[in-house]
Amino acid sequence: MRLLGRLTIMVLRAVGAVALVCARTALALRHVSGRELARALTLFGYRSLPLTLGAATMIGATVVLQAGVYATRFGLRLFTGWAAGYALIWEFGPLLLGLIMAARIGARNAAELSLLSVNGQLEGLRGISLDPFRLLVAPRVVAAFLSVGALAAVTFLVAILWEAVAAFFTLHLPLRVFFTSFPDMLRWTDLVGGLTKTIIFGGAIAVISTAVGLRTRGGAQGVGRAAAEAVVACCATIFALDLLLTPLLSRWLS
């Protein structure tokens, strides 16, 4: 019973912290400084590009390797393109990209913000009546949203290309055949669903890691702990959101 109570309080506090970050970011949205936004976009978006491309390559190749096994087993070799594309856009792409971005953006964001709050710089900003949310937090949240969306599009594209290449080498499936199964069976709504999922993951990562980062106290250990907590919280949230979004989106879009 006590455990349940503690758990409830913990969840309520987390929800409260996240809601606070959301609300204050929304309020500060009109005053976001262009320079900070550009900096955050470079940091989260551009600098994550190599990692995303690497991950997309691995994801694409692995999906085909697996899909190929089933395609041959059920005699559906010609549908490999569709099966791989569908799995990638709906599930594999968003989930894996979300997890990797949680590690990349979530940890980075939490570490930076906790560093500022550990060093007393946030207090300092308030001291000269500057709103740290307007200056530091809002640009990060916005940038994380935009970056993850853009990176998701790139990932899908690159991963599908690599899927085609992998299918060519492992299943000896001509590239043309791989792609002809696409327009017949994949609709643009599938793409919208996958992208929406990923962008929502991106937003969750931004808000949660910000909430964790701002709460930190206590030196080098505190910063490390904040980064670690942010990664765990982001990963757990992504899985939970995945469950909620998959049926919701597939119903709306079909």
Binding site: L51, I59, A61, T62, I100, A111, A227
Partner: peptide, 29 residues
């Protein structure tokens, strides 16, 4: 200082995750 710890965590997590993906692929192949 503390900033170095933050960097270590960020890079460490990314490399660990990326390594898992690569190893997974190599073993699958």
């Amino acid at each position: 200082g503390a900033g170095a710890v933050g960097d270590a965590v960020t890079v460490g997590v990314v490399e660990a995750c990326m390594g898992c993906l690569v190893l997974d692929f190599l073993i699958a192949v």
